[in-house]
């Protein structure tokens, strides 16, 4: 079963994304901050990460930077979650190696579509 890690400090977003992906056949884990995400991937490797940008402590961009700097997670597919006003962060995220992004508020159907598309591309 494909494993997704959802990283977001908003429990509402975590609940929505986890439910949608869980009902679509994914195994979903979630953490509430950047450091927890870094700690998680140190011991387990998900198949994809949904990563919020604005979080207390380590931001999503800082987490992404660390992921890409490590051999084990350099190629981990990452989809950024970002609010509408943070388009400059999207640009920075792509520079750091993110695979796609979703702007909040988001369409759950679109989210699932993008997850499937990113996983398909990374499998090639």
């Amino acid at each position: 079963m494909t494993r997704v890690l959802v990283v977001d400090d908003d429990p509402g977003i975590v609940a929505l994304v986890s439910y949608k992906l869980g009902r679509s056949g994914f195994e979903v884990d979630s953490v509430g901050d950047g450091q927890a995400a870094v700690d998680f991937v140190a011991t387990q490797t998900p198949d994809l990460m949904m990563l919020d940008i604005m979080m207390p402590g380590l931001s999503g961009l800082e987490v992404l930077e660390r992921l890409r700097a490590s051999e084990t997670t350099a190629k981990l597919p990452v989809i950024m979650l970002t609010a509408m006003a943070q388009e400059s962060d999207v640009e920075r995220g792509f520079e750091l190696g993110a695979d796609d992004y979703i702007i909040k508020p988001f369409s759950p159907r679109e989210l699932l579509g993008r997850v499937n598309a990113v996983l398909a591309r990374s499998a090639r």
Partner: peptide
């Protein structure tokens, strides 16, 4: 209250 919060997070059929 939870649904109000969700309504701000999603678009579409939800």
């Amino acid at each position: 209250r939870v649904l109000w919060d969700f309504s701000r997070q999603i678009t579409g059929s939800g």
